[in-house]
């Protein structure tokens, strides 16, 4: 189902922060093919348009969770949806997080801001099959304590480590203040046998990858999720190019050995 949207009904909305909402969607009739962590859907707000939204939760009954931040016209419309509303869905599109690549490895899941959303189903997949991997480390950077996503779930993610740091603490915040990479000192991993999954703003991705390379991770063991303008998601419209990559097809998840030379070119 890649050309024509299928109707999905909003069955639940959960405000995460002042500008971010998680919606639970269920197919009205037919369901899209199964999603995998890191892949995305084109979500259509009636009459407004489509936006690419990574899947934030894959439910056993065919339902999907999407965490949407009100940034443009479409995402604002999606954030304003009430239960019962119907949206159009196409997908799944793009590459996902390559969890089999990390078999037996320690895992570093590094998220900045809304970048935690596409990593959530990855964390859940790891928690559901903990024997497949080494230690799970989740490192989260947020703007303020109020901007933290999935607050009720984070305690269960410390297998063994889940760290949170914010850029600006409010009154009463007793946690870390600083960039997300400072949490790497507390994470438990052996660099030679670690795979990292990184999603956030591009500057954060590059800073994190640099730090991880410095600590001895191989570039192809650093998987990053990139963002470009997307319209068709089927590789036909040309918008999501990043040099040789069509990110709707060759991404959004890309190994850093491919991403690094591209991200270092200005305005590519």
């Amino acid at each position: 189902m890649t050309a024509i949207p299928l109707p999905y009904r909003v069955v639940e909305t959960r405000p995460e922060t002042a500008d971010t909402v998680t919606v639970r969607l269920e197919p009205v009739h037919e369901a899209l093919p199964p999603f995998a962590p890191g892949r995305f859907a084109m979500v259509y707000a009636f009459g407004v348009g489509e936006a690419p939204v990574s899947v934030a939760g894959i439910l056993p009954d065919g339902g999907l969770l999407h965490t949407v931040r009100a940034a443009g016209a479409v995402s604002r419309a999606l954030c304003a949806l009430a239960p019962g509303a119907v949206v159009g869905m196409r997908g799944p599109f793009g590459t996902g997080w390559d969890l089999p690549l990390a078999a037996g490895d320690d895992l570093l899941v590094v998220a900045g801001g809304i970048g935690l959303a596409p990593l959530r189903p990855l964390v859940q997949a790891v928690l559901a099959a903990p024997q497949g991997h080494g230690r799970l480390n989740v490192l989260i950077g947020a703007r303020t304590p109020d901007d933290l996503l999935y607050r009720g779930e984070l305690d269960g993610w410390a297998r063994p480590y889940c760290g949170i740091t914010v850029d600006r603490p409010g009154a009463g915040w007793r946690g870390r203040v600083g960039v997300v990479t400072t949490l790497l000192d507390e994470a438990l991993f052996s660099p030679a046998g670690t795979t990292a999954f990184v999603c956030g703003p591009e500057i954060m991705i590059r800073a994190t990858a640099r730090d991880l390379l410095h600590r001895g991770l191989a570039p192809d063991r650093i998987l990053v999720s990139l963002e470009r303008n997307m319209h068709c998601a089927t590789g036909h419209c040309g918008h999501c190019q990043l040099g040789p990559l069509l990110l709707c097809r060759d991404g959004p998840v890309v190994g850093y050995e491919r991403a690094e030379p591209l991200l270092s070119v200005r305005e590519l």
């Binding site: 850029d167 990479t181 956030g200 954060m204």
Partner: peptide, 16 residues
């Protein structure tokens, strides 16, 4: 460097 990165307010409503 960390302080300058945070100065960009990367996770803010308008990113960088």
């Amino acid at each position: 460097r960390s302080a300058r990165t945070r100065l960009l307010d990367l996770y803010g409503p308008y990113g960088s």
